[in-house]
Design a protein around this nucleic acid. Sequence first.
RNA 1: CGGGGUGUGGCUCAGCCCGGUUAGAGCGCCUGGUUCGGGACCAGGAGGUCGGAAGUUCGAAUCUUCUCACCCCGACCA
Length: 585
Amino acid sequence: MHTNITSYIFVLMKLTEYFVPTLKEEPADSVIPSHKLMVRAGMIRQLTAGVYSYLPLGLKVFKKIENIVREEMNAIGGNEFYLPALSPNELWHQTGRLEDYGDDIFRIKNRELVLAPTHEEVFTSIAKPNLISYKDLPKIWYQIQTKFRNEARPRGGVLRGRQFTMKDAYSFDATWEGLDESYNKNDKAYRNIFTRSGLKFFVVSAFSGAMGGSKSEEFMVETEAGEDNVALSEDNSYASNVEVAVSYCETVARKNSNLSLEEFHTPDIKTIDELAGFLGITDKSRLAKSRVFVIPGKEEKDNKYVEVLVCGDDEVNETKLHNIFSGIRAAHPDELSEITGADAGSIGPVGVEGKLKVIADLRLKEADELISGANKNDYHVKNIDLKRDVPGIEYFDIRTVKEGELTLDKNSKLRITKAIEVGHIFKLGTKYAEALGAKYLDKEGKEQVIIMGSYGIGIERIAAAYIEQNYDKDGIIWSGEISPFHVQLICVNTKLENVKQKADSIYNDFIKLGIEVLYDDRGDISPGFKFKDADLLGMPLHVIVSEKNLKNDEVEVKIRRTGERMKIPLAEINSKIPELLKNIN
RNA sequence: CGGGGUGUGGCUCAGCCCGGUUAGAGCGCCUGGUUCGGGACCAGGAGGUCGGAAGUUCGAAUCUUCUCACCCCGACCA
């Protein structure tokens, strides 16, 4: 499938022979800049929701990214595979993921097959009969392949599609120390890949969610188009997905006034804000927000219920909650009133023992004089002392961090921003090897389960993320290794014999120099049109050959990113252009 | 899955509320000519079952119902 990589890289092209359908107007179906620009620059076209055709220019960029990925994976000893996208339902059933993935997996209607969204199972099925001795380990196996996910809502063009290219790698180790090593190798490869791709990225620790396993880190690119909220410290010492981020936060101080509980009437008060307004106070930290969650049992009667308390100015972080109680979900409104006797807005921690387990955020650990719902509609209770009034209460970190809070070491402030995930590395552990029975014999001849890691990169996402970080009002701004071409050579007037001849000869010189050049040799197109197209396509350097410059034995060169222009004598082109390119990249 | 929106030549859209000749514009495309350093100009031309189905009506792009597709926000999810 990917036999001759260099053939993609050293393709030299004349625009008269190349299919690059640029668009002057913005496509109606796109919203984010990278999507608009990839369509306008003739890189991609949508076929149906979340599914894109890759046109020659887009494919060239994707192949360059793949090549970087391939080089870096090979550099850490990775073996490249190419596995089928079709795989039997049975294999997925064995690990329980046929069920776990649910509607997100594409199923073939007339065979018991799925279109694979990832390849842990298939790789493990190859490992099982072949990696059977400690001598066979460790291994890093990977592929660059099309993945299929039935995304509920594809968006952002190629940023979240139903069909996309992924580099997925898997490590197989005999020991946990070995897994650490494999993980670190992949981590290093990833840093190289994203650096070479020209991305400004950062790494966050992340909850591994449906994948199972322990440690996992995401490689993120900051962009407005991102789908994840991340907390970054201003000194760059801390980066974390908001789902798991922590901050330094003052606890609610204990007053030790020992006032007794007091119920009071709060007609139609449903929210913390309304309650604060009703009481005429601005500090909401003592208005304890109560939310009820359910841990579903085998049958409904086995359900367990948890009341979660956070400060009124905080939000419950459901991911953190999941990490404490797996399978937990928010209670439905009817469940709420059934369990507590009140509707949302009037629920509180007092008098619920036996019915509900109560947990509270760490900020509330010492708190007294709290106000919360009375478990009776339109009533609240004041002077709640959690230690005194809520027997069996436990404390966890279950709040969501907020912009401007201090890092745990108090050295820096957090800001919350949006980012797109371009890569993810996991320490999977033994989940898949266990489920599929992939074992090896150790030195003592004892059977052991293979320990796995899993490492993914979205190829098209890298391109889209790059564009999100590198564009202006005129178009894309390419630079570095993933730029489809180094130079766009513009022949301003193809009708003038001497201009055309000179441009042709420069084109041929560039080929000899190994410069990748996109040559705009189109006739019947006005100079302005060519300049606009060149800006849209965004090659790092534009070399402009025109009659007026040739009179002085010069060409004009424009640096796309800065707009800087300069004249270069014809005699110096072959030395100057490579030099300029070096400085840009 | 919940909410909102949009489907009219290749592209971007107007027309629809308030039904009435051959359904429009700009861009693109074809022919000829003039242009040629920031998406040129003139003249001529091709191209549309108005997403689909059913209905109301003398008459439907326009009204009604159903349906399909796509986009956005959210939910969900790597």
